[in-house]
Amino acid sequence: MKPSWAGLLLLIAVIVVLALLPMLVNNYWLRIATGALMWAGLACSWNMLGGYAGYINFGHSAFFGLGAYVTALLMGDRLAWPFFATLPAGIVVTALFAIIIGAPTLRLRGAYFAIATWAFAEVLIQFASVMDFTGGIGGIGLPPFLDERFFYFAMFGAAALTYLITWALFERSRFGLKVKALRDHEPAAEAIGINTSLVKLQTFVLSAVTASVFGAIFAYWVTFINPKSVFGGDITDQMVVMVLLGGLGSLWGPALGGVALFVVNRIIWMYWGDTAFYIAILGAAIVLVVLFLPNGIAGLFSRRVAVSGAVLDKAVGNLVGGGPGRPS
């Protein structure tokens, strides 16, 4: 892809505005911006496997929750680790889980893979709900740290790093070519020497650990977590819809979808409070995107991301039974 000066200038402008935002808005709006950055980053982490590799993961919240719980447990009264020391620990724990879960489940495709990953997240909810050391269903608290700017910049840094990694690995390297090749035709990718099992697992682990970092920051930010609040299926659902809305398999689509849906969520919350109305909005968004916006919001601005419509077709086709779900 040829470099676009307009695109580069826009990117610099966005970074400058985001860097200066804490000086421009009050804490209320800063919290909303922090949440928007978190969802943009989470959507991007889901898109690594779902968009670039074509494996629809309905258990991604498991890794968000693992990061949150590792940080919460290590920062608790008994261990009292500093926050930044918990991040690598969360990454290691999440990577181990991702390898253990990914190695067998990535042999499945389509709906079979989606169900297996969803089941994994459900197992973790049940596990965290019954174990004493996780605080059971009542949850677990973290030491409060009430500095909105810290959490804003932590989410900003994590999101920026996630997008940088995605750009460098999936859009600008051999690794990205391998991932996209296996998404489009796995036997043909194998036939050109790509170890598809390994590349899928690497992508799965990368996708998982980035979600785990957001989980860790989230836990410290909200100072209290319980199984539903970090492992809940609605977290993954939102990531999926954000990516579909923004543009599956595109770099910036997840950011656009993440910010757009989170802002809608906050507006609904402002007017109607904590209501299930947002769930209906999510459902409607899925239907509308599949029917009328297969390339997502990003597809409206760039011919290149028109690719995501075809990726969406394939992903949906695989999920509803067209794809080979048997072991590959």
Binding site: L177, K178, K180, A181, D184, A188, A191, G193, V311
Partner: peptide
């Protein structure tokens, strides 16, 4: 067996990726 969503050039480069 095409890599449908990749460009023609990317299809060729993918063959050299490994």
């Amino acid at each position: 067996a095409m890599f449908d969503n990749m460009s023609v050039t990317e299809n060729l480069l993918a063959a050299a990726a490994e």
